[in-house]
Design a protein around this nucleic acid. Structure first.
Lengths: 213, 213
DNA sequence: TGAAATTTTGCAATGACCCCAAGTTTTCAG
DNA sequence: CTGAAAACTTGGGGTCATTGCAAAATTTCA
């Protein structure tokens, strides 16, 4: 299954551009770096940058690929007897307890957050990513529960689960931005997760239980 | 309290520019209309347009001013013995039942939706408006419940209430975009509101009950 | 009525992003 | 091994949103 030289080179170039760009962004902020500078620093033309990334924002969020279907994956992978929401809560608790970089619990994440904080267009991009997360999750729920096309529940439950996810991420982002230590934030967010679970109704917590389809 | 000529003229100019712009957007779509065209059509210079509106998107959402604190206002105006969430549900039911244009239940709203649908930057702007709605609501809840600074509940409850609001608006937008009649959509959304209420926990439904502070 | 305050405008520039045609590089059939 | 076909890169030339600046034009008010 050897891939051609061309494929390998493309992957490398793409990765290289994205790395260079992210470095510059972390150093000087999103808006202060022009696409022309990035192209220069990566030894390619501006056109090549746009060949790989549809917009400047995508250079920053390139690493976050795969984050979009995370919730859907967690739901599809839920245990027997477990509901969609409980699976997400369990996975989130796991990540937070493990102080995982995948949820932003790492040294230096504040620099990442600072870049986002200072660029409205990056925040916009984040929201549209959230929308994608929602859509992927709704699709997963619809398939897993074999809901009919007109059933509003998959949409509503997806909204509730995304809310969980978002509350956790916004909190982590805010606290890391404030300079807190990952371990500290981890403890705090575990408490938050309990608060969140307390606010969810049984209907939400018991939706899409595996085995009870 | 007579306002000066200058003030009156400014208001008029602002309104005129916004009206002209909205007309053009509805006719030809957001991206197909340039700011220069708008300025021309409104008999002002491009700089004047930017004098009144920080960005092109603000020309479209100018009318929506006041929508940002609607939830906060509803909460502050809740009845004695009524919780924040129930006040919002009651007000929403009222608007929907009355087939009110304030919630998009009007002939021609599909044209409005089509413009938004076709312009990613308008959707971005909508999300940032939602963020403002959330913040205003969280502030209101914090004040109404005299919550301490570290209390996460006002944030979480605001998230839940915004979710209600959003679910209703997204549904109305989707159905109107699909060409449904306002009266039809109204009936459908009233059912949706029951579904939504069913998914909320007692904790959410009983938060910030007036009189039980 | 004329100077001060405020608004409008023209002009120039920056930077994201798009389109196209001309190179370059990689692939692959023969 | 070789020469075209396919895919990638680049340079050049736009469009358009958005900003800064300083020169008009307008409004206010002493």
């Amino acid at each position: 299954m050897a891939e051609g030289l061309r494929e390998r080179k493309k992957r490398q170039t793409r990765q290289y551009i994205s790395d260079i760009a992210t470095g510059l962004f972390l150093e000087r902020g999103f808006e202060a770096v022009t696409v022309a500078e990035i192209a220069d620093a990566a030894n390619v033309s501006v056109n090549t940058v746009y060949n790989y990334f549809p917009a400047k924002e995508d250079l920053f969020f390139d690493r976050s690929a795969g984050m979009v279907d995370r919730l859907a994956r967690w739901v599809r992978g839920r245990d027997a007897g477990e509901s969609a929401a409980r699976a997400v809560l369990r996975e989130l608790r796991g990540e937070v307890e493990a102080v995982s970089p995948r949820v932003g619990l790492m040294e230096g994440y504040d620099r990442f957050m600072r870049v986002i904080h200072g660029a409205p267009s990056l925040r916009s991009r984040l929201w549209s990513l959230q929308q994608e997360v929602h859509d992927a999750l709704e699709t997963a729920l619809r398939e897993e529960t074999r809901a009919t096309a007109g059933d509003p529940l998959p949409d509503l439950i997806a909204g509730q689960i995304c809310w969980i996810h978002q509350a956790v991420f916004v909190t982590i982002g805010r606290e890391m931005l404030a300079g807190r230590k990952p371990a500290e934030v981890s403890r705090e967010v575990l408490v938050l997760l309990d608060d969140i679970e307390d606010l969810l109704s049984e209907k939400v917590l018991n939706y899409a239980v595996r085995g009870a389809e």
